[in-house]
Design a protein around this nucleic acid. Structure first.
Ligand SMILES: NC(=O)c1ccc[n+]([C@@H]2O[C@H](COP(=O)([O-])OP(=O)(O)OC[C@H]3O[C@@H](n4cnc5c(N)ncnc54)[C@H](O)[C@@H]3O)[C@@H](O)[C@H]2O)c1
Ligand SMILES: NC(=O)c1ccc[n+]([C@@H]2O[C@H](COP(=O)([O-])OP(=O)(O)OC[C@H]3O[C@@H](n4cnc5c(N)ncnc54)[C@H](O)[C@@H]3O)[C@@H](O)[C@H]2O)c1
Lengths: 207, 207
DNA sequence: AAGCTTTTGTGAATGAGAACACAAGGTTAA
DNA sequence: TTAACCTTGTGTTCTCATTCACAAAAGCTT
């Protein structure tokens, strides 16, 4: 617990550990060793312990980790210990799928607002949320929403991202296959599905 | 051109370079320097040249790269120089979005078959493809499909993955938040949207 | 309470990837 | 042809991440 820089790679793994711990707790495991967790998620025990060590020592030697306590610790590190409101922009094919997806809630995310610019979509209600006109985006500030999921057409992504930032958004999950230019205190995480898929043939055997 | 192991990180970047080159060619750039490409996609020129160097020398000193030739070269390395047929399994919310998504085609992928196990969905036609009963999955072998996109419920992902492998699939793009156990000659690339999103709060400023 | 067992936490060693820096090779112009 | 000028390709260096390996700490047993 006297390290300075925390590797990005470590931060990427923490959510994996968190989900593993949550699932194992649900399975009745009140206590957990680095070896058990490693086996469950497919990692090495040393890696797990090293990653944790950047943030302090929260296990018990000879025993392992208290599962609920571990979950709390990782959640706290990732700032997932309180719920996060998110806004979804672009309620097209992908946006609609995301809107009804329940998998975000285990990390404490909830979609609290949805926007589009298509008149045919505005006013429609999906999963309890009414789709609003993008022109009214500024209302997200009053709702204290700081996270956005961006699923608009690629060509619109940059300008919408800028609007989002201007309205108080601090983090963006971007699905468009393009680079977003944002102030450097804003975090963008991009998921580019086709890009990932493009690697598949490289690894596939000849025949 | 006498390197042995090619870093995975390099393979991850190649599709980015490829798309960059394609877009710049469309923009009229018949020739390209590593610096120009780097600026366009947000990378370093040295990184780009080093990555290319693993596969040989296909630029011209003092000039740069011939864009169409570069595109051909990268495509060939990634085995994207011929079209790849893909099967989509699980035509739920996400599966439907993927089915109508056009972004795969620039890399040469086309979805040629779709399967579900929900009687209400079987027989429906989306984007020219009829959704078939998962029980008929074996037909993909005759169609020589080797790539699968897996968008079924998490609990079903493992068993469906096994079926896919048993029917000749060599590469799987998996959207379920779970680890798939497959023979090691089968390549799985997983996209876990909630997991990526879970990192966002960590990087967001306090206030 | 002493010894045995287990598993953590972490320095040290190893390994891998990114950045640097420049010679090699090619173009252009005169 | 020669000189000035670019940009590639790559050996070297440096930085960062993973793995190793073990002392330290806790529980359990007798
Ligand atoms: N569908 C997929 O499976 C998939 C996969 C990977 C990436 N993507 C990417 O995700 C994005 C969305 O894909 P999609 O398939 O849902 O496209 P889509 O065309 O179905 O949806 C885009 C939505 O954004 C809305 N929109 C456009 N401009 C807007 C603006 N300025 N303000 C507010 N709303 C706006 C449109 O009205 C539409 O509802 C695209 O960038 C696409 O490349 C999609
Ligand atoms: N919707 C999203 O935005 C989203 C985001 C991230 C991850 N995911 C993941 O993607 C997967 C699909 O998500 P979804 O939202 O589309 O779920 P969904 O329930 O809408 O769709 C699942 C589909 O799979 C089909 N299916 C189930 N078992 C099957 C089987 N054995 N054989 C064939 N088909 C089968 C179902 O009939 C259904 O049509 C899930 O694992 C989910 O966790 C979804």
């Amino acid at each position: 617990m006297r390290h300075y820089r925390i590797p990005d790679e470590t931060v990427k793994r923490l959510p994996v550990y968190l989900r593993g711990a949550v699932l194992l707790l649900k399975d009745g495991k009140k206590s957990l060793s680095s070896g058990e967790l490693a086996g469950f998620i497919g990692a090495s025990p040393a890696q797990i312990r090293k990653d944790f060590s950047y943030f302090g020592a929260f296990g018990t030697r000879g025993v392992g980790y208290d599962t609920p306590k571990l979950i709390k610790q990782i959640s706290k590190i990732l700032k997932l210990n309180k719920r996060h409101k998110a806004v979804l922009v672009g309620i097209g094919n992908l946006g609609t799928a995301i809107m009804v997806y329940t998998g975000f809630s285990i990390y404490g995310f909830s979609i609290e607002a949805a926007f589009d610019n298509d008149a045919k979509k505005i006013g429609k209600k999906i999963n309890g949320i009414t789709i609003e006109d993008i022109a009214k985006l500024r209302t997200i500030r009053a709702k204290k929403i700081q996270i956005a999921i961006l699923a608009v057409t690629s060509g619109q992504a940059q300008r919408v991202a800028e609007s989002l930032v201007n309205n108080g958004i601090k983090g963006i999950l971007n699905f468009s296959p393009c680079r977003l230019e944002v102030p450097k205190n804003i975090k963008v995480i991009s998921i580019d599905i086709a890009l990932d898929m493009a690697r598949l043939p490289y690894y596939m055997p000849k025949t």
